[in-house]
Nucleic acid binder design. Structure first.
Lengths: 220, 220, 220, 220
DNA sequence: CATGAATGAGAATTCATTCAT
DNA sequence: CATGAATGAATTCTCATTCAT
């Protein structure tokens, strides 16, 4: 549960080659541009030309760094998966449930606000059946969910929270927090603003935690 | 707020051409196949060939019915939009909040279970910036959300529910109920089952309504 | 030198079938529409759909009358070829050169004004190498030109006109008179009017005959 | 009245991209092949495949140079328009009318002999309504004709030529000289030779100038 | 007579990728 | 490192023609 969730392509890895400064920078520019394009159009819809242009280099040069379109896609996915999962990992069994969950939700909302494209790319990949990351979902992710479900059950047993089905609670948090990134267009159409607005993010967090906790809290 | 949300192409609609039996059947077969393909690959990723094959006809014949890929896409979208929105429309201001919201959530979950592809297609369209249905989002959808937000505020004033930000509550319901369709792959990877399983749907509904209402209910 | 220059397609001819009133009318509508389309776009550029639409019938029905696109084209060409050649045929060896040539030029200009599309279609066919009417050009047309060249030479011998190369004179008349139909767009762009304007046609005729005859007339 | 009549596509021109040797050669090969094909079949009838084949390169590579069929067509037209117009520009008001007009006619005949395909392409474009070059016809071309018409009127006033309607004289020259290129097929069918034959060109020029000038010359 | 349904052979582009320099 | 040149395998869409009714 430590290393990268997706192993880099052998082709790309080139363990021997200690990357130069310029290589490092170009790889970063490519991954950044690729994230933007893939998140907007999905894997098949994205064009290598556009990624290259956005990255400010020739298509040929881009393919010099990543041998193929799919290699870029995989690299981008690998890059974001770790960050996507990180927040859940920090959920502390020994912490106060309300505090722990609130800070988790807050972290997820922040992620949606800061990396909406990553969120959308992830959603896209999963919606298409997770062809590239199925292994990650069935392996590390499932393990993590199982582990944290245990934490929730543990809390319930101790009477700290009401007894709910842990996975469904986790899904609710994932769904709602991602929604602000993935459906930003719809939200903007309806409310005129979005998650990148601080006040809006605040009210989203308040409403969300309000709903969740007033429901979770054991009654007197 | 009655007619179809997306007007059919003038070209297609023409003089209200009374479609023959065979036309009706072929159009249906095409729309059905198209929904499957578009929902899996998005607009750009979908191939007309495949839609035709899934619909059991030649590509040429398919294009005899719908002049272009984008025409098919629009027709599919128009078809689903109405169904997607229908449940919210039925929310009755004079009904009991718990009963009303529960049946709304149930309807949405049922939609996710019965038409997961439609749900994913909708999500895909919105995630790409809603190029085709932006008007619908900013017009009819916004109007509907505004209207139902009033209902929620009304209920809060009467002390029937706790005072929450209505749009965020609506987003939460949308997000969670769609999640079961859109992220079915991830859910299956983690839980081994999904929304098409009756028991699972039951527990999803219970957990969801449990969380929402115990939090919405005004305290003594 | 009597029958039609292009024999009708065996397929179309159907000697046995004495055409009904309605058949006759539909054939005429088709030929008319076809002339318009072929003259605008050339053979390859023309679309059967459009001809059918212009003729006010279904594509299938059109193909019931003429078995194929090329059959329509041939029929149109045959129709116009005779009319195109007719004027030259009337040049009378025993008439007054000035009167004969003037009325010939006038007839050609009238043809350009009345049937500009026919003129353009003919031009188009010839410019593409006359694939359909090469036989007519090398046979009947050459014969006719030879015959009338003799007339011109005869006139020259009798001292009625100056001695010029007959074919070049004929070409000059063909070229200039057709120009007003074929290059109508260019002429309109430059002069703001065209051959369909009576005054313009008059001045074209006057200038043309003026140039030709003051040059042809033997000097004292 | 100096720069190219049709501005190159912004896309292509970009930063005055200094073309490499190989680019220059390939562009030339393409334009050459395109001229041949377009002139034979017109815009719609021409096939990109064939142009590529004639240019000795793959269709893909051709499209690497010119992004689309229409871009090639425009480039070809732009290339030829200037050359088509050039001769008229040189008509010198202070020169001797007979000498000036003769050398103009000679230049036009030479153009027809050397670039019959260009002539036919131009004719084709105009006959279809000049969709691409209407602006040129209504602007630069009209201006040029107006200017040279003044020259002719000026000559007439000075008694150097007979008083004729200048535009019609210009049309006569255009029509006849182009005729030898555009209707080469017909001319060959009738005479057995054509403008590419030196003797034939000579007799065409003599007959033409003979006709025109004996008519233009003021009588004693 | 007439039309709707269906199709296969094109035709123009698009696009990831390879090659040479 | 970097880029221009080149390509072949798709991919959408067009269009004349055939078939069934």
């Amino acid at each position: 549960m430590d290393g990268p969730l997706i192993p880099e392509d052998a082709q790309t890895a080139q363990d021997e080659a200690p990357r130069t400064r310029i290589q490092e920078r170009n790889r970063a520019k490519i991954l950044d541009a690729a994230l933007g394009t893939f998140s907007r159009f999905g894997y098949r819809g994205a064009r290598v030309d556009q990624i290259a242009e956005d990255a400010g280099m020739s298509k040929s040069n881009l393919l010099y760094y990543f041998g193929s379109k799919s290699a870029i896609y995989k690299a981008v996915l690998a890059d974001l998966l770790d960050r996507w999962l990180a927040p859940l990992r920090t959920l502390d069994p020994d912490g106060d449930p309300r505090r722990e969950l609130t800070s988790y939700i807050e972290a997820k909302l922040r992620f949606s606000a800061e990396y909406p494209e990553a969120s959308r790319l992830f959603a896209n990949e999963v919606m298409q059946g997770a062809p590239m990351i199925r292994d990650v979902l069935e392996g590390p992710l499932k393990a993590l969910v199982d582990e944290k479900s245990e934490v929730l059950r543990h809390w319930a047993e101790k009477g700290l929270i009401r007894d709910v089905d842990p996975p469904h609670l986790i899904f609710l948090i994932w769904a709602t927090t991602q929604h602000y990134a993935d459906f930003a267009t719809q939200i903007a159409a309806v409310t005129g603003t979005g998650i990148d607005d601080a006040a809006f993010r605040r009210s989203a967090l308040d409403t969300l935690t309000g709903l969740i906790f007033e429901g979770l809290a054991p009654r007197a």
